[in-house]
């Protein structure tokens, strides 16, 4: 057990535990807090995987923006704790999903070769500063990331931009106060 292992197990526990607590917590604000813990530990896992940019993006986008938005909405709508009983259908489907998740995890553990020493040699990252061509090599450099985005994935990037624009227009339309002449 070395440092990296320790960190992995720590953050893995934190992320899954946070997620689980999020799912079962009664009050939405508590749920949001557990969700933040989970998201930040996922960012830490990204750091362990040496993709620092994505780790920071994870914190920036999820913890910094998305969850603040969630909290804002929770407070705006003043959503209280969930009262009442979970319906039977929900219980049944919950049990079923638990069961299926459990089975799949067991299968995964059985067949994925965990603990197989031959799989555990992580290849070192070559520090290739200048990248050309279509074969994108994994590196910690931001430049490679940008290069990939603007060459091979140019179209998806444009589409993502368009998606953001569409979402923005949609959100504005949705949240605008409806004027009477528009409704008529």
């Amino acid at each position: 057990m070395n440092t990296v292992d320790l960190l992995f197990y720590f953050f893995a526990t934190l992320s899954v535990g946070g997620g689980l607590l999020m799912v079962i917590s009664r009050h939405p604000v508590s749920a949001a807090m557990f969700m933040i813990i989970s998201l930040v530990s996922v960012a830490a896992l990204f750091v362990l995987l040496e993709s620092f940019f994505l780790a920071i993006l994870q914190v920036l986008v999820y913890a910094g923006a998305v969850m603040v938005l969630f909290l804002f909405i929770i407070m705006l709508l003043d959503v209280g704790p969930e009262g009442g009983k979970v319906s039977r259908v929900k219980m049944l489907s919950g049990l079923a999903s638990c069961l299926s998740v459990g089975i799949l995890v067991i299968l995964l553990l059985q067949f994925s070769g965990i603990g197989d020493a031959s799989l555990s040699n992580w290849k070192a990252i070559q520090s290739t500063e200048s990248v050309t061509g279509d074969s994108l090599v994994f590196s910690t450099s931001l430049k490679n990331f940008g290069y990939g985005l603007f060459t091979k994935y140019m179209l998806p990037l444009q589409v993502a931009g368009f998606l953001l624009l569409a979402a923005m227009v949609g959100v504005i339309v949705l949240s605008k106060k409806s004027t009477p002449d528009l409704d008529a």
Binding site: N2, G113, A117
Partner: peptide, 8 residues
């Protein structure tokens, strides 16, 4: 060296 594998 490390015992954490991609499978983990």
């Amino acid at each position: 060296m490390e015992s954490v594998t991609p499978q983990h």
